[in-house]
Design a binder for these strands. Sequence first.
DNA 1: GTCTATATGACGATAGAC
DNA 2: GTCTATCGTCATATAGAC
Lengths: 207, 207
Amino acid sequence: MEAMQTPQPKVSFKEQMHQAREDAILQSACRLLGEKAFDAMTMDDVANAVGIAKASLYKHFCSKEELCSAAMVQILERVQAYLAGLPADMPPLEKLHALVRWSLERLLTNEMPLLPSRNSTLRAVLMANKDYLNGLVTVSDQIGEWITQAQAQGVISPTLPPLVVLYTLYARACDPVVSFLKEGGQYSDAEIVELVVRTCFDGLAAR
Amino acid sequence: MEAMQTPQPKVSFKEQMHQAREDAILQSACRLLGEKAFDAMTMDDVANAVGIAKASLYKHFCSKEELCSAAMVQILERVQAYLAGLPADMPPLEKLHALVRWSLERLLTNEMPLLPSRNSTLRAVLMANKDYLNGLVTVSDQIGEWITQAQAQGVISPTLPPLVVLYTLYARACDPVVSFLKEGGQYSDAEIVELVVRTCFDGLAAR
DNA sequence: GTCTATATGACGATAGAC
DNA sequence: GTCTATCGTCATATAGAC
């Protein structure tokens, strides 16, 4: 019988190193994809950001597409965790507000957006990725539930198809208004978030 | 004194051909940029779409950047013409509605959007193009005027900064909600336009 | 598994004949 | 001005030593 000096299996050190390196790669890819488009980001960029050779990247991910897909799956897992962490007694409408705020804060700090922009090459890649699609369905189901609850309470317009509401919320995750206002330099990050949340839920027309 | 057999100058034929070819190039570039991102579109794509050799493109435009900038300037001229053609007695709010509809219809037919998406390489190119910036300022001034008028009438929320309203309208021109809904296949183009216009001006919350 | 060095291919841009 | 053919460059991906 082997000695059990540690509660972890014997490969833990190596595997932990491997996992840590992989996380560092994903984190760098996340940040870079927040700053530039998929096509504009190169594997050299990622390698330099992580501080390893480009060839080493391919020991972890067999292609640029796979690397970026894994990064996007991680983002989905993070939003799932965020949504799951919202207080159970929080009203559905406030949960939706919180989701949009979370997305906008990511945009403002140039982290990878929850969704790639329209016409992005990355989008075609993701639509062929099973893990990504599964995560997207899970998140969409959760949000869809809150939407229908909010509509039942009459706080989200009941005449809007839930799908339209869902997509409209998703679209805030890559809303160019954020970049425009940030480049203008006239508003603080917090003000930008509030302005976009307000136009999203209340619209431009006077109430 | 020369004979004046035609009202045009003697180079008209050649110049007309030249101009026609150039328009065809711009039109193809416009369509292609509606379908894919600037980085993903190649000069070979454009040449094939027009039906000429790639080298011929460079007799008209000295670089890919210049070609695409010219295409974007053309779009701006087109929206200027559209805005100028709106009835003078149309209420400002309806003019803003019309602008958003025009943008969304372009998106639905995969024509080049009024604005490139966030993080697009094209955006950096355009921000260095004087003609584009001039056109953008002209359009923004016109729209800005209608926004303040609509706010004075109390039909656009007077507490929203006009700049935020302007950017929010611009952002509809590359709204991914349109692609999402179109891919879903559940709604007609006209329905999609109305749904997006409605969420833009009235918001998601019940009124 | 990490590195250096390189194969492979794509794309922007040009040369030179017609 | 248009074409065919090509150059130069850069990015993905791999080979092979350690």
